[in-house]
Each structure stands twice: as C-alpha cells, then as structure tokens.
Design a binder for these strands. Structure first.
Lengths: 336, 336
DNA sequence: CAATATGCTGCACACATGTGCAGAGTGGAA
DNA sequence: TTCCACTCTGCACATGTGTGCAGCATATTG
C-alpha cells in the first residue's frame, strides 16, 4: 500500500521549484505588492503543480488578522434562524471572511466565547445568548467588533441590531382591531429574550391605546410545541378570544394546528392568528400566516457593514442599538 | 476618550506575571505535561487576571492540528439540512472541534475547498456539492478525512454516508400499494444529486416488482416551489393518480398545498402523499406527512466517528459508501 | 556618459506557540 | 556523606508566513 505524503507544502517549496525567493511567493499572494508579472506566473504554475495554498493561520500571526468571524447561534429548529445564519454566512463569505460556527445555549455561551477568542476571530456575531458581563468586557477589551443580532444584551459595550419589535407588535394590534377583533390573546416567547419582552410590551402598549386589555397572555417558549401548549391553555380557558397574536411564527403554527385540529376552530372565520418573523413557511398556502417581516436582508447587511468597519480599523462608533423598521404582511390567517 | 489596549496578551506576559518560564505556561494548557500543581495555579490565576487564552493558531503551527473542521453546506431553506447542520456542529463541538462553515453551490465548491485548505482544516464534511476531481484528489492527498453526508460523489477517494435511499423509496411503494394505490406518480429532486437518483431508481424498481409503472415522473428540484409546480403538472395532466410520492418532504408540502388549495383534493381521501426526510415539520398536524426517516442522529454519529478516527491517525480505512437503514413513518397523509 | 529614478528581489527578523533535552532541586537509601 | 531516582523547569529550536530595508539591474533624464 502506498503511503501518502503527509508533508506540508510550504512557500519555500514553491519558491525552489519556481526558482525564486520565498518572498516572491509571499508577494504573489499579497494584493498590492511588487511582483513582476513574469515571476508571478512562475510562482503560480509552481504552486499549481504542488497543490500549494498559503497557510492562512501562519499568515495571521503576522498580519494580526485571521479572516475568521465567530458566529454563536441558537439551534436551527426555528426556520428564521436558519435563514438568518445562511444569509449572514453567505454575506461574510462574499466579503472574504469565513464564519466559525458554534451553537450555544444560555449556560455554555461563555465557554464558546473563550474558544472563539483562542481562535483569534476578527469579529463576533451573536444571534442568541445571554452573555456574562465578564466575558463581554473581556471581548470588548480586545477592541474587536461584536454585534448581537435580533436581540440586545445587558452589556453596553455591545452593538445590537434588531427590528423595531415593539412597533411590529403594535402594527399587529392595529390590524386586528381594524378588522374587528376585541378579545385578543398573546403568546410570548422566551422570557429571557429581549425580543419577546419588546414584542409583548409593544402589544400591551398598543392594546391600551385602543382601550383594550389582553384576554390572556401565555408563554410559548418560541417553539412549535410551546405554541401548541399555549393554544390549549388559551382555548380551553372558557373565554375564547377572537384573535391570538404570537411572538413568532413557529408558535403561531402550533396555535393554528391546535385550534383547527383539537378545537375544530375555523381560521380566520372564528379566530384570527398572527405571527412574527415572516419566515418562508408563513407564505405556504397551508399556513398563510399574517406576520411581521423583520427584513433579515437588511439586518445582515448592517451587521456585515459594522463588522467590516470594525475590522478595517475605522474608529469604532459608540456601541448602540440599531433598529430596523418592520413591515406587516397580511395573509389568510386574518383576512378571509 | 480612553484608547483601548490593542496589544495581544501572550504566554510570555502570563509567565512574567506568574514568575515562571513560558514553558510552564504552555504546559499548563497542555494535557498530560509535567507541571506541579503549585505553578499550575500561579499560571491560571495570572492568566485569569490578564484575560489570556492560548493562541490556537500559533499552536497549530507546531502541533499540525487546528481543531477546525470544514463544513460545506447547501442552503438551509430545507429544514432537513438545517437540522443536519445543527446536529453535526454540536457533535463536533462536543468532540472539541470547531466547525468552519461555508455555503457552496455546484459551481463555487472548488473555491470553498481551497479556502478550507488554506485554513488547514483537520477534516472536511460536505453535505452538498459536486466536487471537481482535481480538488478531490488534492484534498485526499493531504491525507485528511473527508466525508460526504447525504450524498456520494463520483470520486472514489471520498467516504460517503447516506441512508439506503433506494430501500426507503421501496418501502414507500410497498406501503402505498398495500393501502390500495395503483396509479402512483413520483416527484424527483435535483437530477445532479445522487440521493434523488437513488430514490427514483428504488421507486421504479419496486413499482416494477409489483407489476406497476409510474403514472408520471416530474422534477421538483427539492424545493417547496418546485413541488408545487410538479403537482400542477401532474394533477393538471388529466389522468389523476391516487398517490404522489416525493423525493423529499419540502416538495411533498408543496404538492399538498397545491392539491388542496388549487384542485380542492382531499388528502388522504382522494390522494395519498408521501415525503422523504421525516423533518420535524412532517409531524405537525397541519402536514401530518408520511415520510421516510433518515436517522440523522446516526448519520452524524458515524460522520464524527470517522472524522475523529482520521484525525487521531488511525490507519485510514479504505473509503467506502456507508448506508444507514431508513424507517417509514406513517401519518395522516396516507392513512385516514 | 553620468546621474538619477524606477521596478523588483532577497535577506533577515518577527509573530506566538509546543517540545526534546539537559540539568536543577529534593528526598530517600546505603 | 554519597549516590541514585524522581519531579519538575527553562533553554533553545522549530513551525510557515509577511514585510522593512538595502541593494541590484534597468530605464530615463540631463
């Protein structure tokens, strides 16, 4: 059996084969460095022959840049986060950066951050996570950009990007009231998440604006199962509402499933249901869910711009909380 | 305004503060190296004070191990791939490895591989991708494990893990025939994907086994939209089938949407529909889709075991095509 | 032709770390 | 005391790369 060659190909090997110095090889792969077209070609063909690719890790020792961006993500059961991750990853990739992906729940996030730091990521994007203040301070001290997407954290050092969650929820209330609903229940997400709190407070505020108070508030934990459970509690409680507003789409799907299948309720005839996220599933005829669009593309664009600015050393703007305007998308779950 | 300190903290800084040599610091972070408990504690408290984390990149220069595993993934619109990515990522994380994520379509994969190679990933997992043979050979030459998940590639150097796609499709046919279906149509996925070809051939073989030939075969490109389009073609073609078997769940959802909403067909009364993947959505009451379970957990477990074995230098088993047995899960889309 | 400018190359150092090896220090036994 | 075994430490080299600087060859100008 033939033993494969395990030896790593270095720039020196390429240099020897091409008959030039190692510096020439390095400069060939560095944009904007002095190399004559002739040696450049010699280098490239030698590299091709040997299957050489510059060692990005060794390079990072010198340049202080790894080109790696850490992403700490929640689980992808929620199609909204799957879409977010994909768009974010693609955008970073297009900017020449590579995402290092770690999944973290509330308890393990500090550990993931440590790992990210040991890989010297150029920036950090978080789509989940309550972050301990010790870690936040430590990462912020490294002067690298860190951005929280779709939720904001307690730490002031961290820039966050969310949609105007309260406003979005208010739009939902306005719409429901306009089409005649008065007894409106609310299904909240995870109590720790800022997005859930903001959507709930926006809901309540706008209800009060209309002189209404919520029929019932249940917690659905942002999952399909939790939404279904919440629906059982709400619809089984006697005073049936004429609308249920949910803090995300996934729970709304659970609510509709239970309303239709367990309680035999017609949607939107007897009950209107709304979601939040406008995930691609909301547009399927089987769901046709009225939902609030968060404009993921804009969120991602903003996040990447922020990260790039931070990496290229543009003077760090003071950390802030950026809000993107949301948009209510009407579908058959509220309008017949 | 206070200028943040941009200086990187090195092991030397920790060593000085702790009053030991740099080697002692290094050994503190290396499992199974001689350090007295006393100096270990001195080092750890000094590190904590400075916020030090060893530079994993510099370390990799010496150890020849990065701890990074490349994942080349398709887009995550398909919830099956989202679940696969999450489970794979988590499993790698638990094994002390960090996934570097790149999204690649058929055309760009070679470029992603080059990038992965320049980051010196310890292993490569691909969930998509037709890979050029030049790239396959190049990566295989580096003697690092590479595994294709959920599809196999033309190159023999690459181990692949799939479920027994043909068998799964055959089980679908058996089930449909058993409950009385005779006029069965098939919606294929993407013609380039081995999974689609295998499922189709398994379907056809088992149909022949029962003395049947398919009513119609349409291509749905593995998307919800494609499935919906395929359903329009099939159901609009006059000779309406009594069952439509789909090469994945996403297309089946599209088929059901169109059948119910556009053609007013009752499922499963007038038409049975089956999927493939058993994604979490299939279990929702709104879909209740009979589907083939691929056993993602097992696929991931196998993939990670293979990767770990390859990394730790266990003599590389000859590349092969591993198959996992699938399981048909019955739901209301076929049984009333 | 001389003087200067231009385009390019190679040397040598720096980056942050792991590890083999020699040797220092300690304790115990003869 | 002397010798040996044992546990640990620090020196120094290696890993693969980017880049400032000096210098070489060639082109341009006076």
């Amino acid at each position: 059996m033939i033993r494969k060659t395990k030896v790593q190909i270095r720039s020196l090997d390429v240099a020897r084969l091409a008959g030039v110095s190692r510096s020439a090889v390095s400069r060939t792969y560095t944009t904007g460095a002095y190399v004559s077209e002739e040696t450049r070609q010699k280098v490239l063909s030698a590299a091709e022959m040997l299957g050489y690719a510059p060692n990005a890790l060794a390079r990072s020792l010198i340049t202080k840049r790894t080109g790696i961006v850490g992403i700490v993500s929640t689980d992808l059961d929620n199609p909204f986060y799957a879409a977010l991750l994909q768009q974010l990853g693609t955008a970073l990739q297009d900017a020449g950066l590579a995402p290092l992906l770690l999944f973290g729940d509330e308890n393990s996030t500090d550990q993931q951050i440590t790992q990210m730091m040991s890989y010297r990521v150029d920036a950090l994007a978080m789509t989940n996570a309550t972050l301990s203040s010790r870690m936040a301070a430590r990462f912020a001290a490294s002067d690298k950009p860190i951005v929280a997407i779709n939720r904001y954290l307690a730490q002031e050092e961290i820039t966050s990007i969310t949609c105007d969650n309260a406003d979005g929820a208010a739009k939902v209330v306005d719409h429901l009231v306009e089409i005649g609903c008065r007894k409106i229940a609310f299904v909240a997400g995870h109590p720790d998440a800022s997005s859930s709190r903001d959507r709930e407070s926006g809901f309540l505020r706008q209800m009060a604006q209309h002189g209404l108070s919520p029929t019932l508030i249940a917690v659905g934990d942002y999952t399909h199962y939790g939404g279904a459970e919440a629906a059982r509690r709400i619809l089984g409680a006697g005073k049936t509402p004429d609308a249920i507003a949910c803090a995300n789409d996934l729970m709304a799907f659970g609510v509709m499933d239970v309303a239709r299948n367990t309680f035999g309720i017609n949607i939107p005839g007897q009950l209107k249901v709304t979601g939040f996220d406008n995930s691609s599933l909301a547009d399927w005829p089987s769901h046709a869910l009225t939902s609030v669009d968060q404009n993921v593309a804009k969120m991602v664009q903003l996040a990447v711009a922020l990260i790039l600015a931070g990496i290229t050393g543009t003077p760090q703007a003071t950390p802030s909380h950026l809000q993107i305007s949301s948009r209510l998308v009407l579908r058959a779950s509220t309008i017949g």
